[in-house]
């Protein structure tokens, strides 16, 4: 691991540790970044997946890794779900692999539109189906369903 990156990850970990209330970290893409240095002060990992086999397989590894690192709450969020067939397949995958499915976010053209406009989804389409699903996830996280997060 590059020294500069090691510094960034150590710094990220310490900043998260010192955050007073909620910290939401958009992690660097890729599994290799889910290391102890970065996430040791995190109490919740959301593994964001897409409803196709390779992505779900990756998600299974993220969940495994996060559990190995001792993260209290490891949840799966499946994004861009198009139809019942997608839903059925991901339900079955999560059930078979013991993955805690916390949210299913529907495929939503509003996401691409917001991206194209270079703005936030929430401002572009506050009533979008995808926003609704994320709102439910927020309720779930705050409500503590899926296991209360341990005190850091």
């Amino acid at each position: 691991m590059c020294r500069v990156h090691a510094t960034v990850r150590g710094l990220l970990g310490e900043i998260v540790a010192g955050a007073e209330d909620v910290a939401v970290v958009d992690m660097e893409a890729g599994l290799e970044h889910l290391s102890r240095g970065t996430v040791r002060h995190v109490d919740t990992v959301l593994a964001v997946l897409e409803p196709y086999y390779r992505s779900l397989e990756t998600g299974a590894r993220v969940v495994e890794l996060a559990r190995e690192l001792g993260i209290g709450r490891v949840l799966v969020v499946v994004n861009k779900v198009r139809d019942d067939a997608d839903r059925h397949a991901l339900d079955e995958f999560c059930r078979n692999r013991g993955l805690p499915l916390a949210a299913v976010i529907p495929h939503d053209p509003c996401v691409l539109e917001a991206d194209r406009k270079g703005g936030s989804l929430l401002d572009h389409a506050p009533e979008a189906p995808s926003v609704g699903a994320i709102r439910e996830l927020a309720e779930q996280l705050v409500g503590g369903s899926g296991g209360r997060a341990p005190v850091a």
Partner: peptide
């Protein structure tokens, strides 16, 4: 609550992290 949002590039993790952050 300290949340890490992980995923591949293109999975929508950044949109999720941002929207979730603002809703919280």
């Amino acid at each position: 609550m300290k949340i890490a949002v992980a995923g591949k590039g293109g999975s929508g993790k950044t949109t999720l992290a941002a929207t979730l952050g603002r809703l919280l």
